[in-house]
């Protein structure tokens, strides 16, 4: 039985990880190395955005309040640093949308309005993390983070290909 599929690893009490504050500070520092990521880091500072890490069954970004964002993941199945950074960028971009007044429609609004607005917000978020991933990918210092591979693993492969074509990078 390969060690990677030993079922007893399901029972680990959670992988040792750096302190939350260290992970967040490092992620913001790396984001700041990209022009679009820098905008997000500036937004965090200027608007006093609180960033928290949560233990959640699945990797998730969560914006319950315009000044509070969570990045959640399973501590048994910790996400890579590259993925953490991109997830943080995505949820911060959503916070930026909200701050700019681009909100999801009222829950009672017609489905078509939801589709139009929420889809556009999602597409913008993906454009943003594709841009940051490319900006960081171009820097040798961050080659180990494999940002483009991480985007694909996150399920954004098709979007990344379209983005690269659109931006003339493919």
């Amino acid at each position: 039985m390969p060690a990677s599929t030993d079922l007893n690893d399901v029972l680990q009490p959670g992988q040792p990880l750096p302190a939350d504050s260290v992970m967040i500070a490092k992620a913001l520092e790396i984001l700041s190395a990209s022009p679009h990521g820098q905008q997000l880091a500036n937004f965090v500072e200027k608007k006093n955005i609180v960033i928290k890490i949560a233990g959640t069954p699945e990797p998730v970004g969560y914006l319950p309040d315009k000044k509070l964002v969570y990045v959640g993941f399973n501590r048994n199945n910790a996400i890579s640093p590259g993925r953490f950074i991109l997830m943080l960028a995505a949820i911060l971009r959503e916070a930026q949308q909200e701050a700019a007044g681009i909100k999801h429609p009222d829950l009672r609004a017609p489905l078509e309005e939801h589709k139009k607005v929420s889809m556009a917000k999602h597409e913008d978020k993906i454009w943003y993390i594709c841009t940051i991933a490319c900006e960081l990918h171009d820097q040798v210092a961050f080659s180990d983070y494999k940002f483009l591979d991480e985007l694909r693993k996150m399920g954004h492969s098709e979007a990344l290909d379209l983005y690269l074509r659109q931006e003339g990078k493919s």
Partner: peptide, 17 residues
């Protein structure tokens, strides 16, 4: 303000969203 990715609406990801 919102950015677009041309053709995104035809992706499996868009259908999932």
């Amino acid at each position: 303000m919102l950015q677009r990715i041309k053709g995104f609406e035809h992706t499996a990801e868009a259908r999932k969203v």
